[in-house]
Design a protein around this nucleic acid. Sequence first.
DNA 1: GTTGAGCGTT
Length: 255
Amino acid sequence: MSHFGRAGPPDIRDTFSLLVLNITFRTTADDLFPLFDKYGKVVDVFIPRDRRTGDSRGFAFVRYKYQDEAQKAVEKLDGRVVDGREIMVQFAKYGPSAEKIQKGRIVESASKSKGSSRSRSPRPRYRDEYRDKDYRRSRSRSRGRYERDRHRGRDRDYRHRSRSRSVSPGYRKERGRGKYDDERRSRSRSHGSASPARRSPSRRRSLSPCKTPPSRDKSPDARNHKEKSTTPKSVSPRGQRADSRSPSPRSDANE
DNA sequence: GTTGAGCGTT
């Protein structure tokens, strides 16, 4: 009963996926199943949820066995108030039925068999208007965190950028996944030995030059010499930074 | 406990 999306796609052969948006965060697949099943044969209902929190993302995917039924549900359930919220039902762009959808246009059996008297309903009308216009609403934190999280998995260069932690409000939130960075760094440093719990200062310095740019490592020495010896100008920028702000607070404080 | 554009899981 509540196995929707729990064990992956059950039977996807010629099912059409419908995207249900604007649903409440408390709405579950079980709640949408009877609603959509009334208008057609629902093969599966899947609601993407957060893997960390487990909360619904606010939209669901309903798989219909036939397109005509799916479209019917779209017209019937689209705009229906569910749980006090107006849900939006439309054909999903990506998914098992994406093969039959091109550029948002349904080129399914309609083109294959024009004799299909069942599928006579045209594409969404006003829904297209919304898609056409460049209207954009203010971003929400829910989306922000998701974007960041998604990038985390997709973008593997994020760690490089992480180094340049210039400014970022609400850093505590990233602390959660910051551990990944720590683990990575720890691994790089330990390289198979030493535990993150306790590290030897000597060892840390040994590996420090390996990871930290040489500019800082030889900076103090070279700068000291240069400052008293030559071209204070080239040292200006560096000295300022060192004076104004520690070049690597985490290097000193964290470790 | 909150939020509100969008496109998904084994």
